[in-house]
Nucleic acid binder design. Structure first.
Length: 422
DNA sequence: AACTCCCGCCACGAT
DNA sequence: ATCGTGGCGGGAGTT
């Protein structure tokens, strides 16, 4: 009975009037066939982005957002939590968030990845890591299997490598608040993303993810709840184009694939780079033919070194891709053509619109770098942008130096361009 | 039937 | 006491 106190649940059961959802349950004859899709978190997220992804936005009030988007505040929390996890927003104060934009994604991902690797290798987390760190296996409590009395304080001090409350030296006394935090959508999002960033797999089903995140041997209910949350997360991440839902031939369960590129939803046409292969029930092999990384990594599967390198390369290129995109939009140089401002569109279409579009383009890649480096000039005097740029440079430097060791191929290919930057 | 995931109750922590 | 957050899981909608 993991978290919820027993009595609490009964209460929940009791109320619930049964969804008035359908057709407004009569409320007024407005009969526009109700479809949950109109209410999906993904769509909401798209709209949220459309609404706020502009230069003149920096502060967002939750109430205002809820009103504008016509949803209840609760849903805004959902969105905002995952957006924050990937660096698009930052909480500024109660009820208030600062819009960072997609430019914040690369950094966030980089940090996530670093952290994940650190965790993997068993190193202690950096103390200065601002956000509560994640846990790869947030296994906890549970398994009170028919021991309903054991609610609250039964948190075992889980041996997670991360300490959510990083008081240096302080023994962690994680109690309810920490416990709660561990289960937050935000953290779950981060851990979910970490899966993609550090694992070899390029697709993962939510069940698998849930298992990985929970650890084995969990009650069904636990799993189900986790999976529910993962659905929520996956939907918004998809709408951000960070992941993509794919269907694997054999099972009917879909899986998700990391795209690692953040673009404004529904903006596919052309602007973006690296469009993943036309998908079709893709094989599980990395098919990112368009990614920098595929240049020449012969991954003879079981060679862990190669794998590791590939992983590194993969995330590295993702970071680069993101930086590139971010810079572009920051510079305003890019035809943000794709950006659909103005009205909320049926973003449900996010995916389908895409295909007809560009063919998996390698072509763009090289020239991207050229033009990017050529056109780039930190000419803007806006402090925020400067900071942002500094961030990117930082990220680049680190990534590049670390990656350079691992791949001279990359170096050969891109060193030139990169050096332009640094 | 299985999969998705919206909805909103209510616990909790902050004010 | 009130308010802001957000975990949670029932059960409706979809496939």
């Amino acid at each position: 009975m993991a978290s919820a106190l027993p009595q609490e649940k009964e209460q929940q059961q009791a109320r619930r009037p049964m969804h008035a959802g359908v057709g407004g349950a009569g409320a007024n004859g407005r009969h526009h066939a109700y479809s949950r899709k109109d209410k999906s978190l993904g769509l909401l997220c798209s709209n949220f982005v459309v609404l706020y992804n502009r230069d003149d936005v920096e502060s967002i009030g939750l109430d205002e957002a809820a009103k504008c988007l016509g949803v209840e505040r609760r849903r805004i929390y959902d969105i905002v939590n995952v957006l924050e996890s990937v660096g698009i927003l930052v909480r500024k104060a109660k009820n208030r968030y600062t819009w960072i934009g997609f430019g914040g994604v690369p950094m966030a991902l980089r940090e996530l990845k670093e952290r994940a690797l650190r965790e993997k290798s068993g190193l202690a987390p950096l103390q200065n890591e601002q956000q509560f760190a994640g846990i790869i296996s947030d296994d906890e409590d549970d398994d009170t299997m028919g021991n309903p009395g054991a609610d609250n304080e039964n948190e075992k001090l889980s041996q997670t490598m991360d300490n959510p409350s990083n008081k240096p030296g302080a023994p962690r006394c994680r109690l309810r608040s920490d416990h709660r935090k561990e289960k937050s959508l935000g953290l779950l999002t981060q851990n979910f993303v970490k899966l993609f960033l550090t694992m070899e797999v390029d697709t993962i089903s939510l069940d698998e993810a849930a298992k990985l995140l929970l650890g084995e041997g969990h009650e069904e209910t636990n799993m189900r709840t986790k999976v529910r949350r993962l659905y929520d997360i996956a939907n918004v991440l998809s709408s951000l184009n960070l992941i993509e839902k794919i269907h694997q031939g054999d099972t009917r369960k879909p899986a998700f694939r990391w795209l690692g590129r953040a673009t404004t939803p529904n903006t596919e046409n052309g602007v973006t780079v690296a469009v993943p292969p036309p998908g079709k029930t893709t094989s599980n092999k990395r098919a990112f033919g368009t990614e920098l990384t595929n240049i020449d990594i012969h991954r003879s599967n079981l060679d862990s070194k190669v794998q590791k390198k590939a992983k590194l390369a993969q995330s590295g290129s993702d970071v680069l891709t993101n930086c590139k995109l971010a810079l572009r939009s920051q510079l305003g140089q890019g035809k943000q053509s794709g950006f659909v401002y103005g009205h909320f569109h049926p973003a449900g279409a996010r995916k389908h619109e895409l295909d007809g579009g560009n063919k998996p383009g390698q072509r763009e890649r090289a020239q991207d770098w050229e033009s990017l480096s050529a056109s780039f000039r930190p000419q803007y005097q806006n402090q925020a942008l400067s900071d942002l740029f500094a961030h990117y440079v930082e990220a680049w430097k680190t990534w590049y130096s670390e990656f350079a060791q691992g791949s001279n191929i990359m170096q050969q290919h891109f060193g030139h361009s990169v050096n332009h930057f640094l």
